[in-house]
């Protein structure tokens, strides 16, 4: 029984849809723009536009709906809570009363908008990670952050750290599994019902895991140095990111969507 076998890193679903083929920089930027625009939306027409955009994106990505729904399950409680709080705590015309609590029509409207906002946000964010491999996500982030190097942001170093983390997570998981089995063979109890005992049982797992992680880090640093690594300066890349006509089309569509939503807010009617 391996405790860690089911954990996959990221939730990338490989495919060849138009969304998969977009440059990661385009996708990251679209999600960024979408988030900003989402907070400018105040009426039903704006939400309808945003929803249409999201549905179109999901459709084009050809991602099974159940994959997206699975990602929403953990936040279900948050959605219900948000809706309930908005419903009862927004002052306005009374819809119904529940003991001391008064539900208002304005609350219903606010609650629905709030839930829609969270849902759209989550779907778009999941879509990004579902259609972009961790490697290209990292490359995209590095490229987007690169201009901020002039103000001292270590864009390359951050991306390198992410890459190494992604590379070593499966290795360390395997190791954790091995250590756990070794400790269980010596009578360690990882399945106790008592929380304090369970936390204490993690010590003999975490200590060797950290010791080994530090040793690995040291060896990896030596190996990187042996392969002439000296930071991000003067470095070239095997795979360069290339924006195509597809990216231009996606950007145009996003721009149109943003213009509609912002137009509805400031020039209603």
């Amino acid at each position: 029984m391996s405790m860690f076998r089911d954990i996959t890193i990221g939730q990338y679903l490989s495919g060849s849809s138009v969304v998969h083929r977009l440059d990661p920089r385009t996708k990251i930027t679209i999600v960024g723009v979408f988030m900003v625009v989402l907070f400018a939306a105040t009426d039903a027409a704006a939400y309808a536009t945003l929803t249409a955009f999201t549905v179109l994106a999901v459709h084009l990505a050809r991602v099974p709906a159940r994959m997206l729904l699975r990602g929403l399950r953990p936040v279900l409680i948050l959605l219900v809570l948000t809706f309930t709080l908005q419903l009862f705590l927004t002052p306005g015309r009374t819809m119904f009363t529940l003991g001391p609590l008064v539900a208002s029509w304005e609350g219903l409207r606010m609650g629905l908008f709030m839930v829609a906002r969270l849902l759209l946000l989550l779907v778009m964010a999941s879509l990004l990670t579902l259609t972009t491999s961790p490697v290209s996500l990292t490359d995209g982030l590095e490229s987007i952050l690169a201009p901020f190097r002039v103000v001292g942001l270590p864009a390359h170093e951050l991306a390198m750290m992410m890459t190494i983390a992604l590379r070593f997570i499966p290795t360390l998981m395997e190791e954790a599994d091995k250590i756990m089995k070794a400790q269980m063979a010596r009578g360690a109890d990882f399945e106790s019902r008592s929380l304090s005992r369970r936390i204490r049982s993690l010590v003999p797992l975490l200590v060797p895991l950290f010791v080994s992680a530090f040793r690995r880090a040291d060896e990896l640093a030596t190996a990187m140095e042996a392969r002439c690594y000296r930071g991000g300066r003067h470095r070239t890349r095997l795979n360069r990111l290339r924006a195509t006509a597809l990216d231009a089309a996606a950007a145009a569509l996003t721009g149109f969507m943003a213009a509609v939503v912002i137009g509805l807010r400031w020039w209603p009617g």
Partner: peptide, 30 residues
């Protein structure tokens, strides 16, 4: 140089990207 532990000298998450690591550091054109 090739070291003892195979896990602790592979940097990238894809084989070809790892092989590219050295030439990338040497600023070889793509």
């Amino acid at each position: 140089m090739v070291f003892q532990n195979p896990d602790n000298q592979i940097v990238a998450t894809v084989v070809e990207e790892d092989v590219a690591f050295g030439p990338e550091n040497l600023a070889v054109p793509p």
